[in-house]
Design a protein around this nucleic acid. Structure first.
Length: 687
RNA sequence: GGGCCGGUAGCUCAGUUGGUUAGAGCAGGGGACUCAUAAUCCCUUUGUCGCGGGUUCGAGUCCUGCCCGGCCUACCA
């Protein structure tokens, strides 16, 4: 029952470039990947595009904290994201960034459409700015005492302690979390999209029952569509990391949520250009289905603003928006202190990606319910179902046919294989509806039928009687085919297992319909373990590592540690960190304690002093140092400094310089030599 | 306070348009097998289907009130 090939475009929510991927994100990524792999396996043209979401205040802040440019920051994060996805077998067709030229162009195009339809309004908005950087401060970037209960250290939107909500301008003794100084209030122009003009369209689109889950449609109706839609503020004043709004002379930028979803289109466009595809056939064609996967936290963006944008600019509307719930671990929100805030990379240090893919699949339904990762359940399910029932089928029958291969024709199996083939339609329907939990249940039923078959046929007994060689081969041909059928059904979830089985049975698995025809006459390769059981210790180790990571993070970037000293961030801004180096790189530089034993002016030099440094004993070095403006020679004699002792000597106009002394400072008169604490001796190495 | 979702065996859940004695897996108990990754197979215990009303010949399934849990939201998008 093969359908006509469909043309399907799929997206997952764009990961924000402000942090690493964790196992909560993976729920969505696995959900999406399974759906995409399923569609491809069914023979449809299915393309999965996505990108990093890279703009906004949070990115600026993080980049600054890291002492690097935003561009460098988002590139590094994007690389890390892609690595995590690869580790989990997420097979997208194109990964882009919202900070791309294509996205800028498309954002401009959509913006123009709003302008042409006269749907953009400009109004003054009161807001707070950082005193140093002049940045507009989102509520979460302002802290102060709650105006209601006086609790300290509260964000500008609501109070953790008493639950009061207010605006950032109401905070008592507010400070900017950027400069730690009181913010400055002011007023700037903001650009708004008047989406109320599209109210009727949105009402119809969201309530049609075609595109959204019922809960979502109800939510939108109850919260937004029951009254006039407020104008949507899509601009932020400079400085802002994002795209400048055309015609605003660099004063205004699009709010990150304006250009983020446009990244779906931009990524598609890039993919089209790379693959010689016609862009309009994907985003301006009735033939194409568009499916978005995302979490319930961002549903209103995707179900109100986004359709409004697409409608206005004349793009395809989403065929279906698939919204999922959040991940809990052990019934609770992920917690850093409990070690359940597990990064994707941390998981991969300890466990196989397919285990989590399987577990998520076994628990994912089409609703918005939260998914709970119960670690005991996780171990049990994977070991009992995946390894004990499914994989065990192969490991108990493959080796009996290793010599002979599969029978030339498929033997009578009392309709077992045919039943499995029939079940395939139900399984496919479950996948199609994102009811993976149901799909897995249906698949396990097949395994629960196959194991008793092997039990009753008892190939281990047939083996003992040479006259039953044919029967033995037949029994194993059946067992291996039942196994393979199950594996085909699990392919969207467990792509690696499928590859292993294809190799074992010498027949590639490329299409769902291969589950309808038994494989015969092929050789069977030597059996190798297809999946290890989970060792609970690995789970424990993973939790421990997560705890350690969280503790380290808290130590290095504790919220306001050190802020009482009032150290400015300027030096880091002036000279961002250079690229990371290894300890091997570092030890190449031999830093030593040295004592200044002589110092004199170099008459012809504008900046240099000539120093004679002692490394103890008879070890002397002559060094020309550019510190003339800051130090008198006589004040230096006798003091200890830090020098680069293995620097290649350099011939200068005034003589040979045999090293460098270490100093910091802005330059000119502001140069400060490093000195060791008392006790460090000349000649000792700095490590 | 409002909205949504859920409350079925110790645990995780399934129960399709209301229809006979309410099911599965795991865990527990007993047995078998020994090919397999202490896997597998057979047998087996356990339920006031959250509580109270109502509709119906008949309700886990529909209506209603309440209790409990989760998520969202509280004039913010």
């Amino acid at each position: 029952m093969t359908e006509a090939p469909r043309k399907i475009l799929v997206t997952a929510a764009l990961p924000y470039a402000n942090g690493h991927i964790h196992i909560g994100h993976m729920v969505e990524h696995v959900q999406t990947d399974i759906w995409v792999r399923f569609q491809k396996l069914r023979g449809h043209q299915c393309v999965f595009v996505w990108a990093d979401d890279t703009h906004g205040s949070a990115i600026m802040k993080s980049a600054r904290k890291a002492g690097i440019s935003e561009e460098t920051f988002i590139q590094g994060m994007s690389d890390a994201h892609e690595k995590d996805f690869a580790g989990f077998g997420i097979e997208y067709d194109h990964y882009s960034s919202t900070h791309s030229e294509t996205n800028r162009q498309l954002s401009t195009e959509i913006w123009s459409a709003f302008q042409e339809k006269d749907l953009v309004a400009v109004r003054k908005v009161a807001e707070l700015f950082d005193a140093d950087t002049g940045e507009s401060l989102p509520d979460r970037f302002v802290k102060g005492r709650c105006p209601k209960c006086d609790a300290a250290d509260q964000y500008g939107d609501n109070c953790d302690k008493c639950g009061a909500t207010y605006s950032a301008t109401d905070l008592v003794d507010p400070i900017s979390t950027i400069s730690e100084k009181p913010p400055v209030s002011g007023e700037t122009d903001h650009y708004f999209l008047q989406i109320e003009q599209l109210h009727d369209f949105l009402e119809e689109w969201t309530q049609s029952g075609q595109h959204l889950q019922d809960e979502v449609a109800n939510y939108l109706k109850g919260h937004f569509l029951g009254e006039p839609l407020r104008d949507w503020d899509v601009s932020r004043p400079k400085p802002y990391f994002g795209f400048e709004i055309p015609g605003t002379a660099g004063e205004h930028f699009w709010y990150v949520w304006f250009d983020a979803p446009i990244g779906y289109i931009a990524s598609t466009k890039e993919w089209c250009e790379k693959n010689g595809e016609d862009f309009d056939s994907w985003w301006r064609s009735e033939e194409t289905e568009i499916h978005h996967f995302l979490g319930k936290d961002i549903q209103y963006f995707h179900c109100l603003f986004w359709p409004a944008m697409l409608k206005t600019a004349g793009f395809n509307l989403p065929t279906r928006v698939h919204i999922h719930g959040f991940l809990t671990v052990g019934g609770e929100k992920m917690s850093k202190t409990k070690g359940t805030f597990i990064k994707a990379s941390t998981y991969l240090n300890h466990l196989q990606p397919e285990y989590l893919r399987y577990y998520y699949a076994a628990k994912l339904g089409p609703k918005l319910d939260d998914l709970d990762l119960n670690l005991e359940d996780f171990v049990t399910k994977v070991n009992a179902e995946l390894v004990g029932k499914v994989v065990n089928l192969a490991s108990r029958s493959a080796k009996f046919v290793q010599q002979t291969g599969l029978s030339a024709s498929y033997p009578d199996d009392d309709g077992l294989f045919a039943q499995g083939a029939e079940q395939g339609d139900k399984i496919a329907a479950a996948y199609e509806n994102c009811d993976y939990a149901r799909a897995i249940r249906l698949i396990l039923e097949l395994a629960d039928r196959a194991n008793p078959f092997v039990e009753n046929a008892a190939p281990w007994n047939l083996r003992k009687d040479e006259s039953k060689a044919q029967e033995l081969q037949d029994v194993c041909t059946i067992a291996m085919n039942l196994f393979r059928q199950i594996v085909i059904y699990l392919t969207p979830v467990l792509p690696t297992l499928t590859e292993q089985v294809a190799e074992l049975m010498n027949d590639p698995i490329l299409h769902w319909d291969q589950s309808k025809t038994p494989l015969t006459g092929t050789p069977i390769n030597k059996f190798k373990h297809l999946a290890k059981r989970i060792d609970e210790k690995d789970v424990t180790k993973m939790i421990e590592e997560s705890k350690t990571e969280a503790a380290e993070e808290a130590a290095t970037e504790g919220p306001l540690v050190g802020h009482e000293y009032g150290d400015s961030e300027q030096p880091m801004l002036d000279k961002p960190l250079t690229e990371e180096c290894t300890i091997e790189d570092f030890v190449k530089v031999d830093l030593r304690i040295a004592r200044v034993v002589a110092a004199e002016h170099v008459p012809e030099a504008r900046k240099l002093l000539k120093l004679t440094l002692s490394l103890g004993g008879e070890h002397r070095r002559q060094v020309f140092a550019g510190i003339k403006a800051a130090y008198e020679p006589e004040s230096l004699v006798g003091r200890k400094v830090v020098m680069v002792a293995n620097l290649k000597p350099r011939k200068m106009k005034f003589g040979l310089s045999e090293g460098m002394v270490c100093a910091a400072g802005a330059g000119g008169e502001e140069i400060f030599l490093l000195s060791p604490d008392d006790g460090a001796l000349p000649g000792q190495r700095v490590t």
